[in-house]
Design a protein around this nucleic acid. Structure first.
Lengths: 236, 236
DNA sequence: CCTTTTGATTGATCTGGATAAATTCGGTCG
DNA sequence: CGACCGAATTTATCCAGATCAATCAAAAGG
């Protein structure tokens, strides 16, 4: 899938700061919990970096991704406010983290992570929800068609519909049409859904043609008929 | 401990203390542990069942899988001794669990799970290693070819090669050839790798033809040249 | 303004893996 | 031992999605 990775050198050629640079900038010392802000397309850490901090996302959206040596990319997680990330089983991060929007992140203290039961419960809850999301995503990547993948992706963006609780064909009027913001380019969506950019584009066009969705703006999609889209996810 | 559990290497290397050890250390009370044995192909729980027990695998291999309404199946995890499973973010299990071999499992006490910091650390370590395995698996499902998937699968079965540390072309003689046990039918492998049974079969035949592997028994494969196989995983 | 760049869309073709249909292998039971 | 049955393999097509190649549209920059 040899393409030039935009994420790594976005914004006019400058390579995004490494976590080493963040550390140098003195954003915080080890045992504090001071929030930091980063603009869109900031790389918070790279796969293989020494895993020395654990983050909690306060605002914004972050994606975690992995690269193969030949440049193929897979986005493995999309994280929203409340998510804990950067915890690693080994010495180094197993994937890279990049902000999809401007973000506010806190650093969690490694020591209290080990000792505070309430913080541990919080972390466990986060990890469990990530695990379940990844299980769902494995089904998507391993078994779903392009149309099903894109439909699933759109439904996940609808608040309170992450679990796709489709209430039925006759629902409160107006509730059937919802607008969602992607926060992602077509390339990022493709790398998340295990497709090519062209296939994503084609599927979105087809959904538009069928009147299922409207493209208000490039990254703003209005789902005209939630229930119809919901039924195309392969889960109903 | 630096060793990262890929969630999938068979053989001796135990990862972190099992609950049996916690029990010995007096961390849990008596009624928490009920070690039980189940034969091969036992379903320990179904997706959607009320999630009332948390398990720890003491011996054997367990697979977790999800089904789509039309019958498509995706195996989302393969678990070895030491893994904790059955913890759920919600009220119910998000996937089903079935033994691939005869297994011995313990049940963890929900109460100590919430309160014991050392048990929590243990659980967190397990979850993190599962998370990393799932990240790798997302790359496999989203971006790898059939040949790369099967090669990766075989390499994961080689103990101490979960991370695919290929030592180089000239390695201690004999060490270059290893035998692995699959514990899975072709159908289960296919459902794990996001392929069909036919494709798995064809790829295995091709590897056999090329002299990369030997099929000693149906579920027993001898990897004749680890390094060659290692290079076909897409990661080198 | 016009030019350049970047991302999205569309079209034409190709192909890896799916599908379908025999065939062979490995047990098991009578 | 031989008949039988399910799983695995093999072989022959088929098609969804990849690849290759323009084209279009919106910003960015001079």
């Amino acid at each position: 899938m040899a393409y030039v990775d935009r994420g790594f050198n976005s914004g006019g050629g400058r390579i995004s700061p490494t976590s080493a640079e963040f550390a140098r900038a003195g954003i915080q010392n080890d045992c504090t919990l001071r929030p930091a802000r980063h603009p869109q397309h900031s790389v918070l850490f790279y796969e293989g970096d020494k895993a020395e901090r654990v983050y909690e996302l306060d605002e914004g959206v972050v994606m975690l991704f992995k690269l193969l040596p030949d440049g193929r990319r897979q986005v493995v997680e999309i994280l929203n406010a409340g998510s804990v990330f950067g915890l690693s089983a080994g010495e180094v991060y197993d994937c890279s983290a990049e902000s999809l929007t401007p973000v506010k992140v806190s650093t969690l203290d490694r020591n209290s992570l080990e000792t505070s039961p309430s913080l541990q419960r919080h972390v466990t809850r986060c990890l469990l929800s990530q695990l379940e999301t990844l299980h769902d995503h494995a089904v998507l990547l391993g078994r779903k068609s392009a149309m099903e993948r894109v439909s699933t992706f759109l439904m996940r963006l609808v608040p309170n519909r992450g679990g796709f609780g489709c209430v039925g064909p006759t629902e409160e009027a107006g509730e059937d049409s919802r607008s969602v913001t992607l926060h992602m380019t077509r390339q990022e969506i493709a790398d998340y859904l295990g497709l090519t950019i062209e296939t994503v584009s084609r599927v979105i066009s087809e959904m538009k043609r069928k009147g299922l969705i409207c493209i208000d703006r490039q990254d703003q999609i209005r789902i005209v008929n939630i229930c119809r889209v919901c039924q195309m996810t392969g889960m109903h």
